[in-house]
Amino acid sequence: MFNNVGMLDRVLRLAFAGALLYLGLVVYGGTALGTGLAVVSAVPALTAVFGSCMLYGLLGINTRAPENQ
Rank of each mutant, 00 (worst) to 15 (best):
N3A: 13
N3I: 11
N3E: 14
N3P: 11
N4R: 09
V5G: 04
M7G: 05
L8T: 10
L8W: 03
L8I: 13
R10G: 05
R10F: 06
V11R: 10
R13I: 06
R13Q: 08
A15Q: 00
F16K: 07
A17I: 04
G18C: 11
G18L: 12
L20V: 07
L20F: 09
L21F: 15
Y22N: 11
L23W: 10
L25S: 13
L25P: 08
L25N: 09
V26G: 03
V26F: 10
V27Y: 06
Y28G: 10
Y28L: 15
Y28T: 14
G29F: 04
G29V: 05
G29N: 00
T31N: 04
A32G: 03
L33K: 06
G34T: 03
G34C: 06
G34Q: 02
T35N: 06
G36N: 04
L37T: 05
A38I: 08
V40E: 02
S41E: 02
A42S: 10
A45P: 00
A45Y: 00
L46T: 07
L46I: 13
T47R: 07
A48H: 00
A48F: 02
A48I: 07
V49T: 08
V49I: 15
F50E: 03
F50L: 15
S52R: 15
C53V: 11
L55A: 15
Y56K: 12
G57R: 09
L58Y: 07
L59K: 13
L59F: 07
L59G: 05
L59E: 02
I61L: 13
N62Y: 00
N62R: 02
T63E: 03
T63A: 09
P66I: 14
P66W: 06
E67H: 02
